[in-house]
Design a protein around this nucleic acid. Sequence first.
RNA 1: GUCCCCAUAGCUCAGCGGUAGAGCAGCGGAUUCUUAAUCCGCGGGCCGCAGGUUCGAAUCCUGCUGGGGACACCA
Length: 500
Amino acid sequence: MEPIRLEKLEELRALGIDPYPTEPFAVNTTAAEILRYYPQQKLDYKAVRLAGRLWRKRLMGKASFAVLRDESGDIQLYFQRDSFADKPDLYDIVFKKLLDLGDVIGVEGFVFTTKTGEITVHVERFRLLAKCLHPLPIEKQTEEKTYAAFTDPELRYRQRYVDLIVHLGVRELFRRRTAIVQAIRDFFNEKGYLEVETPILQPVYGGAFARPFVTHLHALDMPLYLRIANELYLKRLIVGGFTGVYEFSKDFRNEGIDRFHNPEFTQVELYVAYQDYYWMMELVEKLLETVVQRVTGGLTVKYGELELSFQAPFRRVRYYEALTEVVGQDVRTLSETQLLALLHERGLPLPEPPYERIDLIAQLFDKVVEPTFIQPTFVLDYPVEISPLAKRHRSDPSVTERFELIVAGKELANAYSELNDPLDQRARLERQAALRAAGGMEAMPLDEDFLRALEYGMPPTAGLGLGIDRLTMLLCDAPSIQEVLFFPLLRPEGSPSPTP
RNA sequence: GUCCCCAUAGCUCAGCGGUAGAGCAGCGGAUUCUUAAUCCGCGGGCCGCAGGUUCGAAUCCUGCUGGGGACACCA
């Protein structure tokens, strides 16, 4: 903390001013509201009360200007010594000397327009509401230059509160994130789907393929896993008789961290009984059209250098057909050796051994085909081997009724006609378990309760998982997932945390 | 986990073998319409940490820590 600011704190106390007062300060307007409505005189602006941070001081002799920043934005303040005739020290000492940029203050006064035409609050009374003991990296800019921009990503993420104070655009981004979630929730609610909550701590994890975080429940002396997906629980609810359920789900995956991955991330998963993946494609098109329109005001989104159009219908391509187009021959007819040669040709690394033929195909698809889909594209009919929870295709049992929605070369959503044949499901999960065992990975018992639920009969169901962080990145033109998480995971500062 | 880049004042950066600089922020003064306010004056640094090379290291080398990017992993 700044020693100078601590001294000021003491001086304030000596003057009988509590730097952290208890009394509330009720505001009756905001900076944005005044700037918007004052020119039309739609409201009475004789006694406005607003609160926020002191953002700039332009001190002159007997009268000075300042800027107040509240949640809505910035507004200029005008302080005049004559306004404090009975207590000039309030102006000369408290305002001019003891208030620092960043201090939280409440002001009361009337609105007027300066000679240069700026709408300004003439402050008649003010109160310190909370002293700020650190200097804030306040940016200053002209047309040509920006001074002291607060740009170090590490500092911005570690001290997100400072980032939010300084960058109004960052606040705007997170409002938009909330608006996206809200738009999705409204869309689902209008259709009568039920928003639910299912366990984050799970005795058996499933619904995706990823390393979990493990913890321990002392009460029952047993391991628990943070969910990597909530799929299997939502399906149990479909078995239970709900026809449409959804959940915004924080999921946890103990994998690498990069521009597109954070160990905890948010998906919304939706399950609707008596529907299939064709129906789900149309729903996703409508959902995205609605959300994008509502949040951005249009259907075209700028993402980096890209212009993305969320105008339905989206392009549809079958998995193997897309591969054939890129590779020039049908990969299903190629031997493992030929596939290896193809990977080698393109300089692609091999999957971790032990790998099977299908892993080579998937590698080709993920590295060569998927990145080419920039505009929203449904990739349909994934191979059955890599889709253990999706129903076999009604006309080709080697593929599944599954689609992924790819946008800007990245997976945004994943959906299936859900596998509801309990015997096929058991066989597929057992195969997955065997593969994992062969790969030397930790053996995870099958989720017997989930299989038992299917044995009671799950209606034919369409299911969807949609990445909220990814969607937010697209709609906010954010280059990394860290930009759309308030508190992205970083290594702790200073000494490492103790091992439990 | 591997590779590349970065770390200098509160913030943003320059300096890249000869003992540390700018702008903004800060402190003192002047100023009743400023808005990057202006004008005069001033302070501020374990140059990320530890070792090495050198007569001499912010600068070169090695290791470590933290961050960014790419790759791998993430059906």
